[in-house]
Structures are given as structure tokens and as C-alpha cells.
């Protein structure tokens, strides 16, 4: 992509119907290759912000640019195609129960219309990288929470996204597994993927060079600035 900013939000407001604004006057730029933690209490608007960044929600006001292109008014079909360049780890993981670990991870590539022989080695490499070699044919209901999260991460990066979003990825796992998952995100970031994680309780990781952004009552507070 020609621009060095993966994402830029300018004066973005989001409200659902006639209700009050969930996100207010958000100005936020995400440079390529950066790692951001978005921290906030429950109800602060983290999930809404992530939906917005994942293009499953439009801003009510303001402008939004993804990979240098305006997307705030983009048609649904264009947003769906752009979404193929964004990896997402959902808070509730969202694996398909009737598909194996391999099939779940391969899904974004299959959706993009690729043939299996073109992605088979990538999927297997990701399975090895996430330590799921012995669970390749297992189905999600038989996996532990940590394993499910690792499958979700592998699925989110299998299409080599430019931007990786994760909604509370460590929320449902213990501290040890959470730390392991963050190591995976850090490794992806070192390989060039821009990572943005929302969490209400950031785990201290000395080896992750991440920026901490706070979200309070719909307002984004960047490092070095104070809430109005």
C-alpha cells in the first residue's frame, strides 16, 4: 500500500440510532508496523471502536481512511473485500464447530477463492507455529480455551493481513496462556503486521514495544494527552 499509515480516523463519532454517542470525536492514526493496546473499562466503547476498524460499522460522522483509501462511505461489497486485508481475533473466538482446526484456519484463504494446494503449506506452518500440530483434525468443541484462541489467531493471520485486530484476546484464558498469546502477537508484529488489541486489563510484557491508548466514555486518549 502506498501510504505509511494503515489507518486514520478524523473526528469520528459513532452512535447507535438515536442514542448517545458511543465514540466521540475520535482522532487516531495507526502507522504501519505499529503495536497498539487500546485499554478501557467495560462500556468504554472498545468493541465499537474495533467494529469500526473492522469495517463492520460505519462512522456516524467524520472520516475514516484505511490503507490510504476513504472507507467511511464505502459500499458494503467494497468493505467486505477490504476486510480481507484485516485479520480479526474476536472476543468470543467464533470458530465454526463443524470444521476442523485445519479448516477453520484455512477459511479466509478458501473464502478468497484460493485453491487448497496454494495455502496448504501456509496453514500447516501456522498450525506448527501455534503449537497445534496434534490438534490439526480436532473440532473446536474439543479444544481448550487457549487452543481455541490460538486457532483464532492463526485464522486471523493466515491471509497475511496488513492490520491485525484482537478483541480482548486474553480475556478468557489464564495469565500464562495470555502471555503466550501476546508473544504470538508480538512475533507477528516483528514480521511487519500492524497489531491493535483491545483489553480492559493489559498484561505487562517487557518485550513488546506497544503504545497504550486509553478509551474513556467514548473518547480516545492518546499517550501524552489528557482527557478533556
Amino acid at each position: 500500500m502506498p501510504t505509511s499509515d494503515v489507518l486514520r480516523l478524523e473526528n469520528v463519532n459513532v452512535r447507535y440510532g438515536d442514542s448517545a454517542e458511543v465514540l466521540r470525536e475520535v482522532n487516531f492514526t495507526v502507522p504501519r508496523g505499529s503495536f497498539h493496546f487500546i485499554v478501557g473499562a467495560s462500556g468504554a466503547g472498545k468493541s465499537t471502536l474495533l467494529k469500526l476498524l473492522f469495517l463492520s460499522l460505519r462512522p456516524s460522522d467524520g472520516e475514516m481512511f484505511l490503507f490510504g483509501q476513504p472507507v467511511h462511505n464505502a459500499w458494503r461489497s467494497r468493505r467486505v473485500l477490504l476486510r480481507r486485508h484485516i485479520g480479526m481475533v474476536f472476543q468470543d473466538v467464533r470458530l465454526i464447530d463443524h470444521m476442523s482446526v485445519y479448516e477453520n484456519i484455512a477459511l479466509p484463504r478458501a473464502i478468497a477463492g484460493e485453491r487448497e494446494r496454494d495455502y496448504r503449506s501456509d496453514v500447516r506452518a501456522l498450525i506448527n507455529w501455534t503449537g497445534l500440530e496434534t490438534r490439526i483434525d480436532a473440532y473446536p468443541p474439543t479444544l481448550s480455551d487457549g487452543e481455541r484462541q490460538r486457532v483464532a489467531i492463526a485464522r486471523a493471520v493466515v491471509a497475511r493481513p496488513i492490520l491485525l485486530l484482537a478483541d480482548e484476546p486474553t480475556g478468557n484464558v489464564d495469565g500464562k496462556v495470555g502471555s503466550l498469546l501476546l508473544q504470538l502477537f508480538a512475533e507477528l508484529n516483528r514480521l511487519g503486521t500492524t497489531v491493535l488489541i483491545t483489553t480492559h486489563n493489559p498484561v505487562e510484557q517487557d518485550d513488546i514495544d506497544a503504545q497504550l491508548v486509553r478509551l474513556e466514555r467514548g473518547r480516545l486518549i492518546l499517550p501524552g494527552t489528557e482527557a478533556p
Binding site: V80, L81, R83, P108, I111, G113
Partner: peptide
Amino acid sequence: RPVIELLHLLGARNGD
């Protein structure tokens, strides 16, 4: 429905 929502989120178009 949940699977279709997920497919949409993973970049699948209605045609796919």
C-alpha cells in the same frame, strides 16, 4: 446465521 455472519466478517461476499 452465526456461521454466515462470520463468513461475512471474514470477507465472504453473498455470491461466495
